[in-house]
Design a protein around this nucleic acid. Structure first.
Lengths: 234, 234
DNA sequence: GGAACCTGTGACAAACTCGTGACGCTTCCT
DNA sequence: AGGAAGCGTCACGAGTTTGTCACAGGTTCC
C-alpha cells in the first residue's frame, strides 16, 4: 500500500473512541494527523494548518457537521480542502445532502482500516493531480473568460454579463462536465446561506443561455439534478 | 428499527450472565443466535455454521480472544465474517490491538441494548452492501457510468436516462452479479418505504434494457426472484 | 430626482417522468 | 395438456420539473 508522502490530515470527531481509531490507522500509514473535537476547533485548525485532507464526523456537539462542511467549503472557494464525511447513517438522503454541501467522499461507520486508507489515498491522489491553477483565462469550447479584465466572450465576440451572470458562468466553467445541483450553484454563486429560491437559479441559467447564444445548448439541463456545462475541450 | 432479515449471529463469551443478555437482546431483534463459550468452540462453530456476524469477548479461558480473532480472519481472508469485539477494558492499547488483528467494530462493557443492536445492524448492512466503491466512474462490460457528470454510456455512446432510470442502473451496477429482488430494488432506488407496486420495477427494467440496447441482455431476469446485472468485468 | 439596470419571484405553459391497469406471452407445475 | 403464476410491453393520465414571461423592489449612475 502506497502512502502519499507526508500529507497532513485533520480528523474531526467528538467520540474519543472513533477519534483514536482513526488517528491510529492514519498515523500507521505515515500521515501527519491533527485532531479537533468540535466544529469550531475544526474551522480554526483547518484555517491555521491548511491540512491536505479533512475527515469530518457529521454528528458533532454544537455546530452541525453540515454547517462545518459548508463553512469549510465557503472559506476558500477556489481551492478547498477535500473532505471525507464520516456518518453512521447510510440513508441516501444523508449522502445526497453531504455531496450537495460539497463533500468529496464519505465513509459509513463502522468502517474497515482498508476502506479508510483507500479513500484517503484516492482523494489525496486526486487533489494532487488537479493543481488548481487559477488561470487568468479560461476557455471552454466557444466560451472564454478573462478573469483579470472580468470579461466574457462567446465565439470571439464579447458578451455583456451582469455580475451575477458572470459569476455563475465562472462557476459552471470551473466545474465543467460535472453536474451542479441548484443548491450547489446557489452556494457557489450567492455565497451566503442565501434564503433564495432554487428556482431562481433556473432563471439565471436561462438568461445566460440567451446571452451566450449558439445553436447547441452549452449549459445542459440534467433533469431532476441540476445543470452542467458541456465539456468540449481537452 | 429495522432488523436485517434472518441474519445469524455467533456470540462467544464465557460469562453466563453476559452471554444470556446478549442472546436475549439479539433474539428479540429477530436474529438467529448461536453461542460458544470458548475459543475452540467459536472456531468450530464459525466454520460449521458460517454465521453472518460474530460477537467475540476478548477475555476467554484458554485461547486468548486475540488468537481466536486472528484465526477467524485468517481462515477465509477474502470474505471473512465481520467481528465485533466485546471488551471490559477501555484502554486505547486494547482497541488498537483489536483493530490491528482485524476486528470490524467493538463494544465496551457495560453496553446498552440500543448500542448493541445499532452496531450489529450497521455491520450487517455493510457486509451486505460490501462493494461500496464510491468511485467517480463505474464500468461493467459495455456500460459505463460517470457519476460526477451524471451520464451513462453504452458501448461508448451516451444514453439519455431519466433520474429514476439512472439510479436504478447505478444500483444494479453497484451490485452487479448479485440478484436483487424487486423489493430490494424498490428500497434502494425509491428510497424508503415507498408504497409502490413491485411490478413497477419490471417496467423500469424494461425501459432500461431498451435504452441500453445491445444484443445480449445485460440485465438478466431471475425468475421468481428479481434481476441481476451481468458481471462481465474483471 | 430620474432613468437604466439588476435581480428575485410568482405564474403558467410545455415537456417530461413515472406508476398503473391491461393483455398477451412464456415458464413452470401437476 | 391445461392451468397458474411470472414476466414483457403498451398506452395513458396524473404529477412533477423546467423554460419563460412579466413585474416589482432595489441599486447604481448620471
Amino acid at each position: 500500500m502506497v502512502t502519499m508522502a507526508d500529507a497532513q490530515i485533520l480528523v474531526v470527531d467528538d467520540e474519543p473512541d472513533i477519534l483514536s481509531v482513526l488517528v491510529y490507522h492514519l498515523s500507521r500509514e505515515g500521515y501527519r494527523v491533527t485532531t479537533a473535537v468540535n466544529g469550531q476547533g475544526a474551522l480554526t485548525t483547518a484555517d491555521a494548518e491548511r491540512p491536505d485532507l479533512i475527515i469530518l464526523d457529521l454528528m458533532l456537539p454544537g455546530m452541525d457537521g453540515y454547517e462545518v462542511l459548508q463553512r469549510l467549503k465557503r472559506a476558500d472557494r477556489t481551492n478547498s480542502i477535500p473532505v471525507i464525511l464520516l456518518t453512521a447513517r447510510r440513508e441516501e438522503e444523508e449522502r445526497v445532502k453531504g455531496f450537495e454541501v460539497g463533500a468529496d467522499d464519505y465513509i459509513t461507520k463502522p468502517f474497515s482500516a482498508r476502506e479508510l486508507t483507500l479513500r484517503v489515498e484516492a482523494l489525496l491522489r486526486r487533489a494532487k493531480a488537479e493543481p488548481v491553477s487559477v488561470s487568468r483565462r479560461i476557455a471552454v469550447g466557444p466560451v472564454e473568460l478573462d478573469r483579470e479584465a472580468h470579461r466574457a466572450f462567446s465565439e470571439g465576440a464579447e458578451v455583456d454579463l451582469t455580475p451575477l451572470e458572470y459569476r455563475l458562468l465562472e462557476v459552471l466553467l470551473e466545474r465543467r462536465g460535472r453536474v451542479q445541483s441548484r443548491r450547489q450553484l446557489l452556494q457557489a454563486v450567492w455565497d451566503t446561506n442565501a434564503a433564495i429560491e432554487t428556482r431562481t437559479v433556473d432563471m439565471h441559467v436561462a438568461r445566460l443561455r440567451t446571452k451566450l447564444g449558439g445553436a447547441a445548448p452549452l449549459i445542459e439541463t440534467v433533469r431532476g439534478i441540476g445543470y452542467r456545462f458541456r465539456a468540449l475541450d481537452k
